[in-house]
Write a protein that binds this DNA or RNA. Structure first.
Length: 432
RNA sequence: UCCGCAGUAGCUCAACGGUAGAGCAACCGGCUGUUAACCGGUGGGUUCUAGGUUCAAAUCCUAGCUGCGGAGCCA
């Protein structure tokens, strides 16, 4: 009878028993009578020890043959060992090579970002990318769990759209049958407003595309965005949901990904400080702070250096609300207390990770929106369906968009958002 | 689109006007407890491309290509 297959993370529970481990040869160190095999299987890494005398000559030779990242099945007995980083080792009795691997491109030497990104399909096997993807998984599960618990319904938005959702930023154009054109969505928000009028609390979580020629550590051309939309909600309600959601995400990652955060050398104490309430300032207050620091001129949007200056000194995400309406989208509701301000909110992550959330309360007044569409020179016929939402039982509502990669990059302490997505799409990179 | 920086061995880099080198990887040998293993040896080059300056160019100049970082825009 063959020994049972056991995941490396579960080996401790099988101490003293024979098991099989299926995985890949991460690295090997060899002596004349001893092989040390570092085996990884996606759940962890374990060291297999192959002694010439214990395993026999045939097995010993087979253990010395597979190259780095060859796929192997290793049979052995689980043994506690104080010298092992994970607490247990495998005393190997047999090794079988499944798929060979020679001249693996990613060795133990250091590599530059260009080379690593060109080999992203292999780089994923390394510890840091694997840890990052596990954190990303937790972030997405935390989002879905939390929103489900709060009564939200997942309503997916279309990827093909007939026109710009907001009419401003650059779109990827694709041919759509004979003589039509379609565009890849840059936001599902307008569709979520329709869904919120049907189901109350809704969200979508999917890719968004921006054909901007941006080359910074905060930008991808394809990124994932969470967009909740809530009926019968105002700006304060939206800010409350953002705060609660971010705290829940951080809590889950701290609870489920401690080892991954250690692998990533993340300062966990910084994340532990992310608890309610978040600091909140109005645009006016923020502009005043910037004016004292750097001579900022009131009325403009905040640039990346401005964001960093505002976030400096805060260990929690900073919420900036009530913006001059000129710098915000046409569909934002105006502040009843000051018609020059839009009821929008941006959330700036700590440690220089920039804007991770943008949202606010939507305008519900039909005549106001018609004027806005005209003022922004948008094609009105494309927005008729959107205006219908105001013609037939409109209610106060609001929502926000959260950038998944920026959030993951912040939680993991990554130098660039491209590491927060399995296969990044950037201005000059679409391979692999 | 604009502004910087870079391109030399498979990878990471050095050489800064005067004989192209190191570490890692590969290959060979040694080692019974390694953890980025260690020790000895071998092979490995159109110095991104095209011009130019010079007795002499990886090095200086011009143009291009590629990548990186930042700005703008945004999540």
């Amino acid at each position: 009878m063959q020994a049972p297959v056991v995941a490396i993370k579960d080996l401790k529970a099988h101490e003293g028993k024979p098991v099989r481990v299926q995985g890949w040869l991460y690295a090997r160190r060899s002596g004349k009578k001893l092989h040390f095999l570092q085996i990884r299987d996606g759940t962890g890494v374990v060291q297999g020890v192959v002694g010439l005398e214990e395993a026999g000559e045939a097995v010993f030779q087979r253990a010395g043959a597979p190259g780095q990242e060859a796929s192997i099945v290793v049979t052995g007995t689980v043994r506690a060992d104080a010298r092992a980083p994970g607490g247990v080792e495998l005393s190997v009795t047999d090794v079988a090579e499944i798929g060979p691997s020679t001249d693996y491109p990613l060795g133990k030497q250091t590599h530059g970002p260009d080379f690593l990104l060109s080999n992203r399909h292999l780089w994923l096997r390394s510890r840091r990318p694997a840890a990052t993807l596990r954190v990303r998984d937790t972030v997405i599960r935390a989002i879905r769990d939390y929103l489900h618990r709060e009564g939200f319904v997942c309503v997916d938005a279309p990827i093909f759209t007939p026109n710009a959702c907001e009419g401003t930023t650059t779109l990827f154009e694709v041919p759509y049958f004979e003589d039509q054109k379609a565009y890849l969505t840059q936001s599902g928000q307008l569709y979520m407003e329709a869904a919120a009028m049907a189901l109350g609390k809704v969200y979508c979580l999917g890719p968004a595309f921006r054909a901007e020629r941006s080359k910074t550590r905060k930008h991808l051309t394809e990124f994932w965005m969470l967009e909740p939309e809530i009926a019968f909600a105002g700006l304060e309600d939206v800010m409350q949901v953002i705060e609660a959601l971010l705290c829940e995400i951080v809590r889950r990652v701290l609870a489920e990904n401690r080892d991954d955060l250690l692998t990533l050398e993340r300062d966990i104490s910084k994340l532990e400080q992310v608890v309610p309430p978040f600091p909140r300032v109005t645009y006016d207050e923020a502009a005043l702070i910037l004016k004292q620091k750097s001579g900022f001129v009131y009325g403009g949007d905040f640039g990346a250096p401005d964001e960093e200056a505002l976030a400096a000194g805060h260990s929690k995400p900073l919420m900036i609300h009530r913006w001059p309406h000129e710098v915000k989208a046409f569909y934002m509701r105006r502040d009843p207390a000051n018609e020059k301000l839009a009821l929008g909110v941006d959330v700036i992550a700590p440690e220089g990770y920039g804007e991770i959330v943008g949202g606010g309360e939507r305008a519900t007044d039909l005549a106001f929106l018609e004027r806005q569409i005209e003022a922004h020179k948008l094609p009105k016929e494309a927005f008729e369906w959107y205006l219908d939402l105001r013609r037939y039982g409109s209610v106060p509502h609001g929502g926000f968009g959260m950038g998944i990669e920026r959030t993951v990059a912040w939680l993991c302490g990554l130098p660039h958002v491209r590491e927060a997505v399995p296969f990044p799409r950037m201005l000059y990179r679409i391979y692999p």
